[in-house]
């Protein structure tokens, strides 16, 4: 699905990612954990193609294509989805119109015609249920006046609508109460399939109680310093990150 090799990236001249390697196969869920400032969100932004992030070294292959060579919109059209940590408000643009524009842009890229209105509405109805999203929210302006939980549910709703190959969840659990967390996680779980992969960026282990990962990685200092099975997340929750930092320093020295 995606293969990241020796990725280096900077923001405003400061190197944040320093030789990151990661391989995610179809159908796998990888969790990326790590202390504050380790580069988790930078990784998500670089993969999505945010302008302020400069890739200085390394390669990313996404389904055989050079991801770094693609514009942000083409990455999305190739099936990469980012659930934003801070979803953006677009006043006056209804969620429905936004999604229809997005879906049709993706279809156009694939050489398909626009989706029929009735098929689209049927899809909206079906996918809304996944995240228990109120029908009214779908008609409201994109994220405008949404609560934190509603915004995150809306991200998952959009993901369900766009049916990506690879979804990156950037701290989707932050700011969610336990009920909202469960709803979001349920939505994600229903979207798991042998063809779809996930990279779940999170600070806390609790999200991984609901979205059970195949692999857990620890990111520190711009690099993945430890990978392991799902139990690694529990260990981190218990022991914190210091032991991993120490271990990594030993290796480096």
């Amino acid at each position: 699905m995606i293969s990241i090799n020796n990725l280096h990236a900077s923001v405003e001249g400061k190197e944040i990612l320093r030789g990151l390697n990661l391989e995610v196969k179809p159908g796998e869920v990888h969790a990326i954990m790590g202390p504050n400032g380790s580069g988790k969100s930078t990784l998500a932004s670089v993969l999505a193609g945010r302008e302020d992030y400069e890739v200085t070294q390394g390669t990313v292959s996404f389904n055989g294509k050079d991801l770094l060579d693609l514009s942000p919109e083409d990455r999305a059209r190739e099936g990469l989805f980012l659930a934003f940590q801070y979803p953006v408000e677009i006043p006056g643009v209804s969620n429905i119109n936004f999604l229809k524009t997005a879906i049709n842009a993706i279809r156009e890229y694939k050489g398909e015609g626009p989706m029929e209105a009735k098929d689209f509405l049927a899809l909206v109805k079906e996918k809304q249920k996944l995240v228990e999203l109120d029908g009214k929210l779908a008609g409201r302006s994109v994220n405008e006046g949404f609560s934190g939980g509603e915004k995150k549910r809306n991200e998952i709703f959009q993901m369900a609508m766009l049916e990506p190959k690879l979804a990156i969840l950037d701290e989707t659990d932050s700011g969610l109460d336990i009920d909202a967390l469960r709803i979001v996680a349920n939505g994600v779980n229903k979207l798991r399939s042998p063809e779809r992969s996930f990279i779940v960026v999170t600070h806390y282990q609790r999200l991984l109680d609901y979205i059970v990962p195949d692999v857990v990685h620890v990111l520190w200092n711009g690099r993945i310093v430890k990978s392991g099975p799902k139990e690694l997340a529990l260990e981190l929750e218990e022991k914190g990150y210091d032991w991993i930092k120490a271990e990594a320093n030993t290796v480096e020295a």
């Binding site: 999505a48 193609g49 919109e73 999305a76 677009i90 999604l99 997005a102 842009a105 766009l162």
Partner: peptide, 10 residues
């Protein structure tokens, strides 16, 4: 960027 990330060009 939010729109771009959903496949919508600038």
């Amino acid at each position: 960027f939010y729109c771009n990330q959903r496949g919508i060009d600038t």
